[in-house]
Nucleic acid binder design. Structure first.
Lengths: 162, 162
DNA sequence: TCTAATTAGTTGACGAATCAACCAATGTCG
DNA sequence: CGACATTGGTTGATTCGTCAACTAATTAGA
């Protein structure tokens, strides 16, 4: 068992448990992103692009307007246009201007995109199960609850703060 | 209470709890990074640069070799050289080649760097306490334990995998 | 209807991250 | 001692992320 403190080679204990929690959280998420990146990178896409593809697969054949995709992204993504530009260049996504509201651009996943996602479903499920095998179902539920409330707290801090 | 599922506007439930956990984890950490960024950005530095400064403050007057800093970073940071280049340009960090082993470059935080950190200590503590006020001490300890084991699981996956 | 405001998305400029190649200093071993 | 490997760090090329300014389409209001 590697504590975050040892892992960072710090001599002194953390000034506070809350700070330790924030550091542990970001560090854990960074590791998770690296694991995911190791899976998707051999197929020529980034984690962000992978998320877009999954969102579009979930959206079905009618597709989704560009900014709706940005809203559903796991991480905040201001550069959604160029992110999808790259997916379109790889033929994994197609775009079409909406006829009724010509401001909107609907994005759809292509068959190639679906095929690529299909090649990632099993490995990503395996990786996640492996990583999460160290904790019990009950702890998993606890984790989800705690994270929900953490985001709540930060949201009120962010949205109320400005 | 906003569940991650509602927040992402997904109709269907997650395929698995584990996947939901990974998404929640990354999303929560992204929010935390944004909160921190909102604090440090007005002072002209990034979250990564803030972390380097804190590491160097912890290291004291003797400073730390460049790659030792990279090791202690919260997130993996391949571009540590240029990151410190920018801190040096802002006069927040000074560098000096080690006389006994001329390969190493020792980095030290400057008085200006310390002053800047000082201006951030109180706000960052407040932000973290606010964000974490929604969870109890006991839950905080649980969270830390769970995150530790998650990182363990991912480490063995990563390091064993390649 | 004509103007102003809002919404949807794109583009340009620039800072930052990433990977590989590289150089210099040191350590190792015959 | 001399060749090779390792360690510590920097640099170049490329991609990516980010902010602000911008265009185009739609809606709202006088």
């Amino acid at each position: 068992m590697v504590s975050i403190q040892k892992e960072l080679k710090q001599q002194r204990p953390f000034p506070s448990k809350t700070q330790e929690a924030v550091v542990a959280l970001i560090r854990t998420a960074d590791l998770a992103r690296r694991v995911m990146n190791g899976l998707v990178e051999p197929l020529g896409i980034t984690v962000q692009q992978y998320n877009v593809l999954r969102i579009l697969r979930g959206a079905g054949v009618e597709g989704l307007p560009t900014l709706d995709i940005a809203e559903r992204m796991i991480e905040q993504t201001p550069g959604i246009t160029r992110l999808i530009d790259r997916l379109e260049a790889k033929q994994l996504v197609s775009r079409e201007r909406c006829p009724t509201d010509r401001r909107q651009v609907f994005c759809r996943i292509t068959p190639e995109g679906l095929a690529l996602l299909g090649r990632l479903d099993a490995p990503s499920a395996t990786a996640q199960n492996d990583a999460l095998s160290a904790i019990t179902k009950k702890e998993l539920a606890q984790l989800l609850g705690i994270l929900d409330r953490l985001r709540d707290g930060m949201h009120t801090y962010l949205d109320g703060g400005q």
